[in-house]
């Protein structure tokens, strides 16, 4: 009994500390996934939230401006101007038409300030990328077994 109590106490203490760290960690680093239309519909009260917005990079919209990079994310017809002011280099996969995930906050003027950009690298399990080789993708869409 004595031993059981000791083990129980130590276990509870360890798990308690980890839980406390985990809860704190979630508050510190949580980010809300939003689509562009949700972002547009957000009230001013939500400007504090860290957001992650996904969309395609509008072709020709990438402009480098000193250490800032401006570009536009599009989803269907909606457009969201983004200014990237992070310190990390932009990924190599970040280019026209790439699927990008911008991580940052909205400003009152409707611009999204991104601290980090992830661009989906056309990785192993990626779907065919439209535009890279139109003929192939069209044929593949018609594949039969």
């Amino acid at each position: 009994m004595n031993n059981t109590w000791k083990f129980g106490l130590i276990t509870v203490a360890i798990l308690g500390v980890i839980l406390w760290l985990a809860i704190g960690g979630i508050d510190e680093s949580k980010a809300y996934y939003k689509t562009i239309d949700e972002v547009k519909a957000m009230g001013d009260g939500e400007l504090e939230k860290r957001l992650r917005v996904a969309g395609d990079v509008m072709p020709g919209s990438i402009v480098r401006d000193g250490s800032l990079v401006r570009f536009t994310l599009i989803q269907d017809d909606l457009r969201l101007p983004v200014i990237y002011n992070g310190t990390e280099p932009l990924p190599d996969t970040f280019r026209d038409n790439a699927q990008a995930l911008a991580d940052g906050r909205m400003a009152t003027d409707g611009t999204f300030y991104a601290k980090r950009i992830q661009a989906k690298c056309a990785s192993k399990y990626a779907p065919k990328e439209a535009g890279s080789d139109g003929a192939v993708s069209e044929v593949i869409n018609n594949k039969a077994s």
Binding site: L21, G25, A31
Partner: peptide
């Protein structure tokens, strides 16, 4: 799985990233 779980329970998709993991995993 936080994005999946949070979406299932609160309807909002919330993700956590490196700071969360570092904060928990470094002491462990």
């Amino acid at each position: 799985l936080f994005p999946v779980l949070s979406e299932a329970f609160t309807g909002e998709k919330i993700s956590v990233d490196a700071p969360f993991f570092n904060r928990v995993m470094v002491p462990i």
